[in-house]
């Protein structure tokens, strides 16, 4: 790694002052540190967020579940509060990476990175999430702006993510067997006012699936989604899977998710 200076603030205001010049936030570090080790990334200042108290808290606030930015995937997966309010979200967290990744990786780090095959972005879109930061708030749909791109300004720090608690929801994921990233992952959430569906892994950035929402709002059943496959201008093709296969897999995951919610 290229040498850097590490700051370890103990409050948000200290963190903001420490973030100066060529700087990056360090949350769980399980994307950033490998990137720095392979010299894809170098910074002069790394601001570690792990010593700031309460940034990992999880709480229920009326019809919303609020997850602190530094909540680790393992903590979300095991949280009685998450399991009671949104079991689908706890299930999603338990499928991220491997146990050692889940013990270190955080929700804030994951969504700030916005990897096109990351799991959390699908949950944020389907669960009508609001991302709170040191600068204000972003609706999930405004927050994610394409591959590895978000609405965050330089030095803007995510503090929490609040999810609207649905009547029921679940996440179905076809994992790449080696990386365990989603080749296609579909989050389905049923609210009183309708169904929301979001897809990750299949496209260059997670996205809502309006066609699936429309048929499920008409009748929530596997027959409604039939052989629906995911249509998008942004379907991804790489050495792991082509666009047609990913579009098809998204359909398979959609039917799996709908079936498990019946």
């Amino acid at each position: 790694m290229t040498p850097f200076s590490l700051k370890r603030p103990t409050s948000l205001s200290e963190a903001s002052s420490a973030f100066a010049g060529d700087a990056a936030w360090l949350a769980g570090g399980h994307t950033l540190i490998p990137a720095m080790k392979s010299r894809l990334r170098s910074v002069e200042t790394l601001v570690d967020l792990s010593a700031i108290p309460d940034l990992d808290s999880i709480s229920r606030d009326d019809d919303r579940l609020v997850v602190g930015a530094m909540a680790r995937h393992a903590a979300v997966a095991a949280s009685p509060l998450v399991k009671a309010a949104i079991p689908g979200l706890a299930g999603l967290a338990s499928l991220i990476g491997d146990p050692q990744v889940r013990n270190r990786g955080t929700i804030g780090g994951s969504i700030a990175n916005n990897d096109p095959a990351a799991d959390y972005p699908a949950a944020l879109l389907a669960l009508d999430a609001i991302v709170a930061t040191t600068h204000g708030t972003h609706a999930a749909e405004d927050f994610f702006q394409g591959m590895f791109t978000t609405a965050l300004d330089e030095g803007e720090l995510i503090t929490s993510v609040s999810f609207r608690v649905p009547r029921a929801s679940t996440y179905a994921k076809h994992r790449h067997p080696a990386s365990r990233y989603a080749l296609a992952g579909v989050y389905v959430a049923r609210f009183e006012d309708g169904v929301r569906v979001a897809v990750t892994g299949a496209t260059t950035a997670a996205a809502r699936w309006p066609a699936a929402e429309a048929v499920l709002n008409a009748a929530f059943a596997p027959a409604s989604v039939g052989m629906l496959s995911f249509e998008s201008e942004n379907l991804a093709t790489d050495i792991h899977a082509g666009a047609d296969f990913r579009a098809h897999l998204a359909g398979v995951m959609l039917r799996e998710a709908v079936t498990s919610l019946l």
């Binding site: 590490l6 370890r8 360090l26 570090g29 399980h30 540190i33 490998p34 080790k37 790394l46 570690d48 792990s50 010593a51 393992a74 146990p99 050692q100 990744v101 013990n103 270190r104």
Partner: peptide, 15 residues
């Protein structure tokens, strides 16, 4: 008490 990969942790963050 939780397992983690020591190749991906900075000593300076583990005070």
């Amino acid at each position: 008490g939780a397992s983690a990969k020591a190749c991906t942790l900075l000593v300076a963050t583990l005070d």
